[in-house]
């Protein structure tokens, strides 16, 4: 019955929150893992090679002069560089020789909102990191400890929304009882969704990403049916391919750069349940869910942040 479903949903959320309060961020870390860190004196274009070579889209920065953590390199930084170059095409040399330590200047030059450098100690409750995550623009939370002898910072790891949801899906059997349709949870982003068409210039799509502080822009056809998505991380491929002559491309052409191991865009309908979506997160590296109707028409988007927010604060 509706009441039973409701009650089950509430009890499951309570149990999952209890679980998140009983664990620490340290518990999410695998027994053995690697962490790639970039020295701030590295050139941006070299750092891009390192990210692509290691199949990662973000990395912590380390400033050897201060021997301290210097924030995170994310796709937002590359979007800033593209926007800066688009506004200053004569500054090719500066962009080509730009070091990671210079990205903050680029941010200021284009008036971009600086990324937060919030971090948390690995021994703090995981619930705290989750709440901090909700307010983080970078959608990542670095785990920072201190070297016991020298009090210097240690970047232990970086938590992402995906890793947290996957940890919940793997360890909380209560996720199977989240059976209410997502249409009833009021968590789908609908209404004035920023979207574009296949022929839209990629630079306009990048502006949409930046202005909307979103990490993806759906691509629809003339009938509003979803046909693809341009993601912030696709910008790395654009730069790698030599952005300087690709900014005139349409977003459809820019997507030709996507490597063949791209898993595809996940869709769902508003009849789906969180139990199913979390199960999908457990099995696949999903970035978000686009909500479509029976005919494939775009209705809304459900980001990992929306799901995490509901789990922490919903109902």
């Amino acid at each position: 019955s509706i009441e039973a479903l409701d009650m089950e949903q509430k009890l499951s959320l309570t149990a999952i929150r209890q679980f998140l309060k009983s664990k620490t961020s340290y518990d999410v870390l695998p027994v053995s893992f690697r962490l790639i860190v970039l020295d701030t004196s590295l050139l941006v274009k070299k750092a891009l090679n390192v990210l692509l070579q290691n199949n990662i889209v973000s990395a912590p920065l380390w400033d050897a002069k201060t021997s301290r953590f210097a924030g995170l390199l994310t796709s937002d930084d590359f979007i800033n560089v593209i926007q800066y170059y688009f506004s200053n095409p004569d500054k090719f040399d500066l962009v080509d020789k730009l070091q990671l330590g210079g990205l903050r200047d680029i941010e200021r030059a284009i008036g971009a909102v600086p990324l937060d450098t919030e971090s948390i100690h690995p021994s703090r409750p995981l619930y705290e990191a989750c709440v901090m995550m909700l307010n983080s623009r970078s959608r990542r939370i670095p785990l920072i400890d201190q070297d016991e002898e020298t009090s210097r910072e240690i970047v232990v790891s970086v938590l992402t929304q995906y890793r947290i949801l996957k940890f919940i899906a793997l360890n909380c059997r209560e996720t199977h009882f989240l059976k209410k349709p997502i249409s009833e949870l009021n968590i789908i982003a609908k209404g004035n969704l920023r979207s574009c068409q296949m022929s839209t210039p990629v630079i306009d799509v990048i502006q949409l990403l930046s202005q909307g502080n979103v990490s993806s822009i759906p691509i629809v056809d003339d009938d509003g049916r979803l046909i693809n998505v341009y993601e912030a991380v696709d910008v790395l491929g654009l730069i790698k391919g030599g952005i300087y002559n690709d900014l005139s491309l349409s977003v459809g052409e820019a997507l030709m750069r996507r490597s063949d191991d791209f898993e595809g865009v996940y869709t769902c309908t508003e009849h789906d349940k969180l139990s199913t979506l979390l199960d999908t997160t457990r099995k696949s590296s999903v970035h978000r869910f686009f909500v479509v109707d029976q005919s494939g028409k775009l209705e809304g988007v459900l980001s990992l942040g929306d799901i995490l927010r509901y789990i922490l604060l919903g109902e």
Partner: peptide
Amino acid sequence: NSTVAILPTSLPQIHRANL
């Protein structure tokens, strides 16, 4: 009755063929 799916036209090979 899960309706979670991968959008076929978003797979790189299909996108390329369509373009």
